[in-house]
């Protein structure tokens, strides 16, 4: 008990539930994999189950499914415009995957796969590469003008262009670290206060109260970080499609 109480990072450990290898590649089914599968199953049940009646006047469940659809559709419309419509399925998948990953992480004894830098970085990297490809496909070499700010004296470009390139290249890093750090910090804090609650006995009421507030706060963060990740993806996409 005491050992666990002083190890708030224990919850992030990867456990190989079904070890497996293909050649040299480790493809073990881990607890992270399990919760990814649970998340996509939950998303699918949520949406397809909600729409099973195709009611003209939606019930609560169908309303929520439609709300998530319209939320992302509106986000793309606002941030990218009509030309962003063909990326809707990807953006939607991204949002639901992160949202459900974050939310499922709030279930006790579950595992938060979005608290792993490799997972968030992989998603951010896919977004980064995808957006860059979109930029080059739509504008060809002209896409490089994205890195040249308009109305800046020639001499300043020597400084500005490298800064622009650097800021572009750090996008996947900031995008992935933001999500991963938020999820990890929140869960670590919950664990620390939970440990205090156990250690302090009757006085554990105080950290328990804090934990209640933190749990509510964590739900907010879980939604907000999914939203931020998605909205930044939309903004990057908008940059690639419309340049500046």
């Amino acid at each position: 008990m005491a050992e666990k109480a002083i190890d708030p990072l224990h919850q992030f450990e990867i456990v190989r539930l079904i070890p497996a290898k293909i050649g040299n590649l480790d493809v073990s089914f881990t607890n992270a994999s399990l919760w990814m599968v649970i998340a996509i199953a939950a998303v699918t049940v949520f949406l397809i189950g909600g729409m099973r009646q195709r009611a003209l006047v939606p019930g609560r469940w169908q309303s929520m499914a439609e709300l998530s659809y319209e939320f992302i559709a509106g986000m793309i419309q606002d941030n990218v415009g009509s030309s962003g419509k063909k990326f809707f399925p990807f953006i939607f998948t991204l949002f639901m995957f992160i949202l459900f990953g974050n939310m499922m992480g709030m279930v006790p004894y579950s595992f938060t796969f979005t608290s792993h830098i490799i997972v968030t970085f992989a998603m951010a990297f896919v977004v980064f590469i995808g957006v860059t490809i979109v930029g080059f496909v739509m504008h060809g070499a002209h896409f490089l003008s994205f890195f040249v700010p308009k109305g800046v004296p020639k001499i300043m470009l020597l400084l500005m262009v490298p800064i622009e390139v650097l800021s572009y290249l750090t996008r996947p890093v900031s995008l992935s670290i933001r999500l991963f750090a938020n999820m990890m910090a929140g869960h670590t804090m919950l664990k620390v206060f939970a440990a205090f609650t156990v250690m302090l006995g009757i006085f554990g009421v105080a950290p328990l109260a804090i934990n209640v507030a933190l749990t509510g706060f964590e739900f907010l963060v879980a939604f907000l970080q999914a939203y931020v990740f998605t909205v930044l993806t939309c903004i990057y996409l908008n940059d690639a499609i419309h340049l500046h």
Binding site: L25, S33, M36, I40, P89, A122
Partner: peptide, 25 residues
């Protein structure tokens, strides 16, 4: 293993969303 399963689950979810759920909604 995380990357492999991320890719598998994300692609499966993408296909489910783009082919089934989103057209329905």
């Amino acid at each position: 293993p995380q990357l492999v399963w991320l890719a598998i689950t994300f692609v499966v979810l993408y296909l489910l969303m783009s082919k089934v759920a989103l057209p329905k909604i």
